[in-house]
Amino acid sequence: MSVDANTVTLDHGAGAHPTDKLFIKTAVLLAVVTAVEVAWSYLPWQDWGDSRALYFAEVGGLLAMMAFKFFVVASVFMHLKFDRKILTGVFYFGVVIAVVVYLAVLSTFHFFTGGGSVLPH
């Protein structure tokens, strides 16, 4: 966490203030990505075979679009892009710890190697 050491006066983001036009453009972008996401999940992936590469393309594509939407909402709608870096710091600190820790938990259950999805009997 690098905090500006000096005592600074609040500025309420005056100056680099985003406009409503930017927000509307962002919303359109998010709507388009959401449409692609849904379409992506409706693609006939099974008909194209069940290779690992196809599976990674299906799931990886969805996860990438999800991460993109998350990032765009946080940066633009939540103003992280226009605000002081300390806010980005504390928030993504939590996001990163959550992602790393819970991925580790799921790994110990062999979730990514098939064990987690198997019925017990």
Partner: peptide
């Protein structure tokens, strides 16, 4: 208002709380 980071207490507090909600 004067704070050390230039962000108001309330806003910083909300962001800290949201970090916690992720977990």
């Amino acid at each position: 208002l004067v704070t050390s980071t230039g962000v108001s207490n309330e806003k910083l507090g909300m962001w800290v709380f949201l970090g916690s909600e992720c977990l």
